[in-house]
């Protein structure tokens, strides 16, 4: 199965999943994943973010990096709704294994243009099994 040659960009919409598995600091993966998401948002694809393993720490609230001399980029997740990135799936098992609940995460919302711009939560906690099903539906998976 080969796709036709032609002006594909813009005419094709694919499902992109960004899988975030590492703690926000200690390695650069979380930041460089976020940078891809921000650039990728301009391409008008279907974008989904998954947070699992230590990746769930990326969304925790009250991050303070002052003592390690590294930029705190966690506020940027709250801006993603403005770029139509509104599907954040957080794996329940990963939260539980780390003693975290939804209350430990930042409130990330978006305004639903199909529902009178009502403010809605972007984060959904899903089971490992549900996340596997979400992964199976994707066209492109980038894991960081």
């Amino acid at each position: 199965m080969v796709m036709d040659e032609g002006p594909l960009e813009g005419s094709v919409t694919k499902r992109f999943l960004y899988v975030n598995r590492r703690a926000p600091y200690g390695t650069i993966y979380a930041l460089e994943s976020l940078e891809v998401v921000l650039i990728g948002a301009a391409f008008e694809q279907e974008v989904t973010l998954a947070f699992l393993d230590d990746g769930v720490f990326q969304l925790t609230k009250g991050q303070d990096t002052g003592a390690i001399g590294v930029k705190n980029f966690s506020p940027a997740y709250r801006a993603l709704g403005d770029y139509d990135v509104t599907n954040f799936y957080v794996e329940a098992e990963s939260l539980g294994e780390r003693g975290l609940t939804l209350d430990d995460l930042q409130q990330i919302t978006y305004e639903d243009e199909d529902d009178d711009w009502k403010e809605k939560p972007s984060i959904r906690v899903v089971s490992r099994r549900e996340l596997a099903a979400i992964m199976a539906e994707q066209d492109v998976i980038l894991s960081f």
């Binding site: 080969v2 594909l8 990728g40 894991s143």
Partner: peptide, 20 residues
């Protein structure tokens, strides 16, 4: 070049294969 080149590869290619 920019990250858009990676996104474009994901859109245009039949498969995007990641090594890392």
């Amino acid at each position: 070049s920019g990250l858009g080149q990676m996104i474009e590869a994901g859109i245009v290619a039949d498969r995007l294969v990641i090594f890392g």
